[in-house]
Simulated assay, not measured.
Amino acid sequence: MIVVTTPTGSTGSQVVQHLLDLGAPVRVVVRDPGRLPAQVRERVDVVPGSHGDAEVVEKAFAGADAVFWVAPPNYRAPSLEAVYSDFARPACEAFAQQGVGRVVGLSALGRGSALAGRAGLVTASLAMDDLIAGTGVAYRSLAAPGFMDNALRQVGSIRDRGVFTSPLSPDRALPTCATRDIAAVAATLLLDGSWDGQDSVPLLGPEDLSGNDMAAIIAEVLGRPVRYEQVTGEEYLAGLVGHGMSEVVARGMLDMFVAKDNGLDEARLDASRSLTPTTFRRWCEDVLAAA
């Protein structure tokens, strides 16, 4: 049995589909089972509730060969520890109590960098990795950079104004990958019973791109002018808090971008890129253009 958390999320939903396509037995932990597509719900074992709840994960992880672990977004959290390590503590106890064989977790690129200790969300995510690894369970942390899919959050601005924004310098080239590639890697690891120990798997995407690079590609794919605009840190924070995000989480996001702008992701750029082949152009053609 393979347990998938966040089965309605952008990555978790694709992990579930990969596993079902390959005939694997799947159990999902989901707050609202009604959000599962009907064709998925009828083929999986559903455990309702939050995977941050001790009783829920004790039930969900019983008899599990492997678990796909993701800490869900919590934009109003009082601390970054609450989003990651504190949320994961009940699961860490359940990994040991239920004898879970392997855990594959979605985390962040940055381990090994001198900036990793002051990188906001990335720092907190790496601390969660350490907590999980400390249980002794066989663990693979998927060390992801920025997601191509994050551009979907700005579909309205791209469509209506021809603009997308972030705090990153316009010419700062960074790795980026598609969630569909992350999901494929996760499913492969979840089905592979031959590995043990703890390690991270850098997922870099096939190319490094700047905001200006991405704007040019989007413009070519959509056939309309699109430009990238860098916003100041203050503007970025104000926008997030204005949309209801807690100040501490908003600051964690900004600190992550500042660290990336200063070289956070460079520590593992020597890693193989063969696991994540989807180019940004291909992703734009397949996903962004339709959105």
Rank of each mutant, 00 (worst) to 15 (best):
R118V: 13
R118K: 12
A119V: 07
A119T: 05
A119Q: 02
A119Y: 03
T123L: 10
A127G: 00
A127L: 10
M128Q: 15
M128P: 10
L131G: 03
I132D: 00
I132E: 01
G134T: 04
G134W: 00
G134C: 06
V137W: 02
V137L: 06
A138F: 06
A138C: 05
L142F: 13
A143S: 15
A143D: 15
A143M: 14
A144K: 02
G146Q: 08
G146H: 10
F147L: 15
F147R: 08
D149S: 05
N150Y: 13
N150D: 09
N150G: 03
L152C: 09
R153H: 07
R153L: 07
R153F: 07
Q154H: 10
G156E: 15
G156A: 15
S157G: 04
I158V: 15
I158W: 06
R159H: 05
R161Y: 09
G162D: 02
G162N: 01
G162W: 03
V163W: 08
T165Y: 03
S166L: 11
S166F: 13
S166M: 08
S166Y: 07
P167R: 07
S169R: 11
S169H: 12
P170W: 02
D171H: 05
R172W: 12
R172H: 12
R172E: 04
R172I: 07
A173Y: 04
L174M: 12
L174C: 04
